[in-house]
Design a protein around this nucleic acid. Structure first.
Length: 106
DNA sequence: GCGGTGACGGTCG
DNA sequence: CCGACCGCCACCG
């Protein structure tokens, strides 16, 4: 199932506060995996939508939902709206206002 | 072991 | 603002 890399990625995703979003690249960096933004998406995909992790709080660096609508993107949009994060019909979120900005990284 | 793949991201036109 | 390209890198057949 999950290797050490996945563990780190999941640990970061678990810290994203309700009502906030983080980007794949941001999660990768916080997990200590500098050039592995793609692996974050891969790791989340391996979980499936039934996981307890807030996978729906992770979006692309351009502020869009990357997941295709039929493959979970629709659910991701619903989950974000449900916790107060505005997502337009095209799946866009205003990062400037809703991106998670952790204080520091110990 | 090799090559294609993708829930990325930065750059360029 | 948007699409096309390209570099990255673990995973999988």
């Amino acid at each position: 199932m999950s290797g050490e890399r996945y563990r780190r990625i999941y640990a970061v995703v678990r810290r994203i506060p309700r009502g906030r979003v983080a980007t794949y690249g941001q999660v990768a960096r916080l997990a200590g995996l500098e050039n592995s933004a793609r692996q974050v998406g891969y790791a989340l995909h391996a979980l499936g939508a039934a996981t307890a992790l807030p996978w729906h709080r992770v979006i692309s660096g351009s502020g869009r939902i990357s997941l295709p609508a039929q493959a979970g993107g629709l659910e991701q949009r619903f989950r974000l709206l449900a916790e107060g994060v505005p997502v337009d019909a095209a799946g866009r979120v205003v990062l400037r206002r809703h991106q998670w900005r952790p204080r520091s990284r110990p």
